[in-house]
Design a protein around this nucleic acid. Structure first.
Lengths: 137, 137
DNA sequence: ATCGGTTTTGCGAGAAAGTGCAATAACTAT
DNA sequence: ATAGTTATTGCACTTTCTCGCAAAACCGAT
């Protein structure tokens, strides 16, 4: 929850709107869609504009407090935490598994060796099946 | 350019609109945004509706003729070709490098071993720097 | 070549996301 | 505590994409 601190340090203003949006993002370990964030915020303080939410999400992303990913054509948001840089999402049960940054290390090397391509993986969200759901299918 | 054949085989009708959209997709090796496809089509036959383009793109995707990816929040389209299942896009020069399906083989194994997660990678678009641009930066 | 059934298109309307601008609220210095 | 400066919000509007429906086009059978 150092987002508030980051906002202050960047000389940005701490408004109720921003606090609520930061709250929403931290209210779960899962990823949230913009819809869900808007609902959370408007539920607690009706009248808050959607544009404000979109702009704040962009601002928080640029400040490094949250990050935005894409899953199934939808934009999803998650708070940023040290050490947990990528996510595996089960397409059956929806569970999120956090995984370490170094998971791509070997794969990056393969791309560099084979194609001379320097890939950069930031907060990747990978779709698939978790251990349980894999067994049941 | 077997899209036309696929359309016929599926009992779908071959309209001028669909031909133009297939043309657009095949006019380049690069990925196209919906904007670019709409422009291409309307340039050749003014009056063609955007909805038609969006619907046809979805139809072609479901028929397996093209695929849709996401890059930088934008949806991009590309024709489907045997053997070239993933793409590396240089974020500096924009060049597309096609790469083989098996590039993810090792990485999939790592995810399965470490997290018990069965990931599926379809037509991935990976952002990074190509050999030339990497050298210059 | 024409007819008729079915698909497809264009149109209007609408949701989702983003933007410019004037009014408002937050923070700083007094 | 107050005033002034600057950032932020809400509003209205634009853009991107989607959907239902009536009119038009396609294609196979005649």
């Amino acid at each position: 929850m150092s987002c508030i601190k980051t906002i202050r340090e960047k000389g940005l203003k701490l408004t109720l709107q921003r606090q609520l949006i930061v709250d929403a993002i931290h209210s779960t370990q899962e990823h949230l869609t913009s819809d869900q964030i808007i609902a959370y915020v408007q539920d607690r303080t009706p009248g808050i504009n959607k544009s404000t939410v979109y702009r704040t999400l962009q601002l928080l992303e640029e400040a490094g407090c949250i990050y935005k990913s894409e899953l199934g054509g939808q934009l999803i948001y998650h708070h940023n935490e040290e050490g947990h840089h990528h996510h595996l999402i089960c397409r059956k049960c929806g569970r999120t598994i956090d995984c370490k940054d170094d998971i791509f290390r070997q794969f990056e090397k393969t791309l560099e060796d084979r194609y001379g391509f320097k890939a950069t993986f930031n907060h990747m969200v990978i779709s698939g099946l978790c251990t349980k759901c894999k067994r049941l299918s």
